[in-house]
Design a binder for these strands. Structure first.
Length: 575
RNA sequence: CGGGACGUGGCUCAGUCUGGUAGAGCACCGCGUUCGGGACGCGGGGGCCGGAGGUUCAAAUCCUCUCGUCCCGACCA
């Protein structure tokens, strides 16, 4: 590709409304432009990067036996009502009416559509296993789009759906996708980790997220240093801490009221009473759908809302506001306690063995000391409800855990029969018995892969693209386009590279060298060939890898061969 | 939706507090000199100051409303 006949509008200035590196660099390198909040146009180089990621995904999906289809972006509301998600999915689902006043929506995901297809077309165990995938634009009306392409409202996604006759086969499909995902992200040159994850609104029994390790990641993940356990903090189990319980009977002190004027937060209460936070119990009042529930958490812990939500099985949970708290406890927020509450009380397992602790007094400016479970109040149920902390141990092996951040680029779910039952996707097994198909679904954020790769691979000068998803493999910089020798040499090598099917950008603009170097670094093409008057005098040209600090020179006639080798080397390093 | 900030040539921003009729750098066009890390000189084009209403002799500047964008929280590939 000749730069002069192409379109790469770069900027020197950092756009003021771009916060994270990948967003800034994609704008500056001329890969994307924003149309409106969370919605972007892909310019030629941005599109090329996305297409390369798509092709890798396509190859690996096909290799894994999945079959490509393309489903509609616009979907009938009817289907969503049938699956029950029309009401449940909420505000991210962009809804509208067509001219006949029928409900419609822009597809944020395609479980409904694919299940509809399958219920119409798959009737026998002989037709399974089968896995359909598509690469398509999705629209989710995110509450807060941000970080450019990373969390847009409109984004390109690969989604796949597997259909199996029994659990065992479904597990096999899941494993095959797990392996395909591993190959895909490796081939894209990403440093990533598969972690156990929460299933969220998609539902289902188990799932893994593929996290690209990056400081700017939106998700917190924990990894064990001793075994291979890794999980999203939303999901991370906490191993039950069993305190010795026998002391409880003997060691209970007399309950005591203490006046705590205006003392509300954990840190205020603990410093006022000169106790440590693990001697205090927080009482959180939550609305879970229509029920109000009190949750007890130790002062130094945080409630994990995901665990809480799935424990109580609620569609929506919400921390109670001041009015509701007052109605339930008789006190303003900050003074709630479990004693005398007429609602269900559930508690994190860590407080099971606690004694003589502090709670709120259910009265303004009052706390209670020496509170004890059983004597002063009862807990309906204990469960693992809190966020894991750095002092917790690995739930699998008891090893040390560490915290990190990741960008979710892929997510795979075992769905079970959630959608097939709701939508009546049934088949006949070998005994002629009717059963719901067992599903799995598997997503990859295609556009997000590009952003994540940049997030992980850049320096002060710009992007350092992993070669498989770089818009170009090689950039040629002829430093003068008004000197015949330079032009001739350039054209010859350019042609040679093209003949070898190498994806090359020839910067044939009549620009000064500095501009060409800066632009080349910005766009981050892995291999750069510089052809300048100095080198040509010695019959040499200069080659530099974007990922390495130093360049080297080589004879003109060897350039194409050496470049070929370098490119092969870059691809091989990702295998 | 709650909390915060910002909208001034294509981009980055100054001017707003203290009203007096719009600037800089970069980018763009022309000519010349330059040419291995975002050159220089000369000349030039481009802005209803997000929009509407109001106050005033006079509004980018003050007031009200509105739209948009970004940042912090709940969602997710």
């Amino acid at each position: 590709m000749r730069h002069s006949e192409y379109f790469i509008p770069t900027h020197k200035e950092i756009p003021s409304d771009a916060e994270i590196i990948s967003h800034q660099l994609m704008l500056r390198a001329g890969m994307i432009r924003k149309l409106t909040s969370g919605v972007y146009t892909y310019l030629p180089t941005g599109l090329k990067a996305v297409r390369k990621a798509e092709n890798i995904i396509r190859e690996e999906m096909n290799r894994a036996g999945a079959i490509e289809v393309l489903m509609p972006a616009v979907q009938p509301g009817e289907l969503w009502k049938e699956s029950g998600r029309w009401d449940y999915y909420g505000r991210e689902l962009l809804r509208f009416k067509d001219r006949h006043n029928r409900d419609a929506c822009l597809g944020p995901t395609h479980e409904e559509v694919i299940t509809d297809l399958v219920r119409k077309e798959i009737h026998s165990y002989k037709q399974m296993p089968i896995n359909f995938y598509q690469i398509q634009t999705k629209f989710r009306d995110e509450i807060r789009p941000r970080f450019g392409i990373m969390r847009g409202r409109e984004f390109i996604m690969k989604d796949a759906y597997s259909f199996d006759t029994d659990e065992e086969a479904a597990d096999r499909s899941y494993r095959i996708m797990y392996e395909a995902y591993t190959r895909i992200f490796n081939r894209c040159g990403l440093k990533f980790r598969a972690v156990e994850a929460d299933t969220g609104t998609i539902g289902g029994s188990s799932s893994h997220e593929f996290m690209v390790i990056a400081k700017t990641g939106e998700d917190q993940i924990i990894t064990c240093s001793d075994c291979d356990y890794a999980a999203n903090v939303e999901k991370a189990e906490v191993s039950p801490v069993m305190e010795p319980r026998e002391v409880m009977e003997n060691g209970m002190s007399l309950m005591e009221e203490v006046v705590t004027p205006g003392i509300k937060t954990v840190s205020e209460v603990t410093s006022f009473l000169k106790i440590s936070p693990d001697q205090l119990i927080k009482t959180l009042i939550y609305k879970a759908d229509d029920e109000v529930i009190a949750v007890l958490i130790r002062g130094d812990h945080e409630l994990n809302e995901h665990k809480f939500q799935s424990f109580v099985g609620a569609g929506e949970i919400e921390l109670a506001g001041p009015d509701l708290v007052f109605e339930i406890t008789g006190a303003p927020t900050g003074f709630a306690g479990p004693q005398g509450l007429k609602i269900k009380i559930i508690a994190d397992q860590s407080i099971r063995g606690m004694k003589n602790f502090v709670t709120g007094g259910n009265k303004k400016d009052l706390h209670l000391k020496n509170m004890n479970i059983g004597r002063d109040f009862t807990v309906d149920r204990f469960a693992d409800l809190r966020l894991i902390t750095s002092t917790d141990l690995c739930p699998k092996c008891g090893g040390k855990i560490s915290f990190g951040r990741g960008i979710e680029v892929g997510h795979i779910f075992k769905l079970g029969t959630k959608y097939s039952q709701a939508l009546n996707a049934l088949f006949l097994d070998e005994h002629g018995k009717e059963k719901p198909v067992i599903m799995g679904c598997y997503g990859i954020g295609v556009s997000r892969i590009v952003a994540a790769a940049i997030e992980q691979n850049h320096d002060k000068d710009g992007i350092i693209f992993p070669i498989p998803i770089s818009p170009f493999e090689v950039t040629i910089l002829p430093l003068r386009v008004d000197e015949k020798i330079i032009i001739d040499t350039t054209e010859r090598i350019y042609q040679e590279l093209l003949d070898q099917k190498i994806d090359v950008l020839l910067d044939d603009r009549a620009e000064r060298p500095g501009i060409k170097f800066k632009d080349a670094d910005l766009l981050g093409t892995p291999v750069r060939l510089t052809i300048g008057p100095k080198g040509l005098k010695n019959g040499e040209v200069e080659i530099k890898l974007r990922s390495e600090p130093k360049s080297f020179t080589c004879p003109i006639n060897d350039a194409a061969t050496i470049i070929r080798k370098k490119i092969t080397g870059l691809y091989d390093s990702l295998k």
